[in-house]
Write a protein that binds this DNA or RNA. Structure first.
Length: 389
DNA sequence: GATCCACGGGAATACACGGATG
DNA sequence: CATCCGTGTATTCCCGTGGATC
């Protein structure tokens, strides 16, 4: 949390006792600067990246672990720091514990949830390497590749690209990843991040190292929750015992734990309480589907798909009875055609954002309809979505 | 004028069922 | 009885067009 945020929080606190002081600290889709208790994982990542401190590019690698084990939190935090290190002037570098050589490679972090096309990929890499912004239109993918070759050819330091969320639906799989990097010069090394076992997705032939991130242990998750609560909520709003309760239920999944805290806080806030109660926690837990999809994944969908979802979470049971009924209800309130809304729903079902379940009532005629059920908490999505508008 | 990609819209395919057929 | 066929829906797939931007 930076100083501005700290000051803002103090200012708001003077406005009176409000439960939710800072949504950013509480948001289950935001990563904090210094993930707690992940020292060993950082060390293993730094071991792998060690060559960069001698100005040498490390080999390709893969970081993997279960949903909510903190992969993204760790990698984003680490790359943030490394990025700063490689751009800081030497005088500053000298004062740090681990001196970086002046030829440190560059660091780029990419979330493949957001770079969904070849064009978007090269664009994102190039954009992170040059000062001025790169046009998003009127420039061909080939032109982007040419510019990247030109820029990377100038410096022999090269870059390390972290590629997050590999292997998710709508993201990039192993062959896609290899193809994308085939379009880049050889002084580019990648660090893929995903959930799947390296062998299962055939990644081991391309990597020198695989680093497994174990799920959070109970006590670590409690600490994470207490930290978030102390930064985002009023004083003493979250009882330690309730944090334990959430951690126990979440079973190592930090995403679900933070989502539960967020929903519980939202519930208590609407009831105008300044402390979380057991019933808030229970209600929150009851609202999170198991298994659930990452809220970050939902919030990185194209804008119009999110519009459709935003309408969907407010529909009543009648309008959710079938895909057709849901489509009708949504398309009447949205500036999209019936066909498009329906296609969106099917596509999101395919991606696991929602789930199609066969409805029990069908009148014998034709193929039985199905309805869509959410694979995420409606309250959490509603609040996070509205906060962004 | 060039480029990308979101939309729309429709064609193709899958599925369920009842009734006809061998 | 097993299989095929026709009909009505549901679902998937595909591709041209046009908006937005440079």
């Amino acid at each position: 949390m930076d100083i501005d945020a700290r000051i803002k929080r103090r200012e708001r606190r003077n406005e009176g006792p409000r439960l939710i002081q800072d949504y950013d600290s509480l948001s289950p889709v935001a990563h904090i600067d210094e993930p707690s208790d992940r020292g060993p994982v950082f060390e293993r990542l730094l071991d792998h990246l060690d060559p960069v401190f001698d100005g040498v590019l490390p080999p390709n690698a893969y970081v993997y672990g279960e949903f909510g084990s903190g992969k993204s939190a760790i990698v984003t935090a680490l790359f943030d720091h490394l990025k700063r290190l490689s751009t800081e002037p030497r005088s500053v570098i000298h004062t740090s514990t681990r001196a970086a050589s002046p030829t440190t490679p560059g660091f780029v972090y990419l979330d493949m949830r957001e770079t969904t096309s070849e064009f978007a990929f090269y664009h994102a890499v190039l954009d992170s390497l040059v000062e001025d912004s790169v046009p998003e239109h009127g420039i061909s993918t080939e032109e982007l590749r040419d510019r990247l070759h030109a820029i990377l050819g100038e410096s022999r330091n090269g870059i390390v690209v972290a590629v997050d969320h590999v292997g998710e639906p709508n993201s990039t799989d192993t062959t896609g990843l290899i193809d994308l990097f085939a379009g880049l010069p050889s002084n580019v090394s990648w660090l893929a991040v995903g959930r799947a076992d390296p062998e299962r997705i055939g990644l081991t032939t391309y990597t020198a190292t695989s680093i497994n991130v174990a799920p959070y242990q109970r006590q670590m998750l409690v600490d994470v929750l207490m930290t978030r609560a102390s930064e985002g909520l009023a004083q003493r709003a979250l009882d330690h015992e309730l944090a334990r309760r959430i951690a126990e239920w979440a079973d190592g999944n930090a995403h679900d734990a933070l989502a539960a805290l967020f929903i519980a806080a939202d519930r208590a806030s609407r009831a105008e309480r300044t402390r979380l109660l057991e019933e808030d926690i229970d209600a929150a837990i009851g609202e999170i589907p198991q298994p659930s999809v990452s809220l970050a994944q939902v919030l990185s969908l194209p804008a119009n798909k999110q519009v459709v979802l935003r309408k969907l979470v407010d529909l009543d049971a009648d309008d959710r009875a079938s895909v057709s009924a849901t489509t009708e209800a949504i398309s009447s309130t949205v500036d999209l055609s019936v066909g498009t809304v329906k296609r969106f729903l099917y596509e999101m079902a395919e991606a696991g954002i929602v789930e199609r379940v066969q409805s029990d009532d069908h009148d014998g005629k034709g193929r039985p309809p199905s309805r869509v059920e959410l694979r995420f908490s409606p309250t959490a999505f509603r609040r996070l979505y509205d906060l962004r508008q």
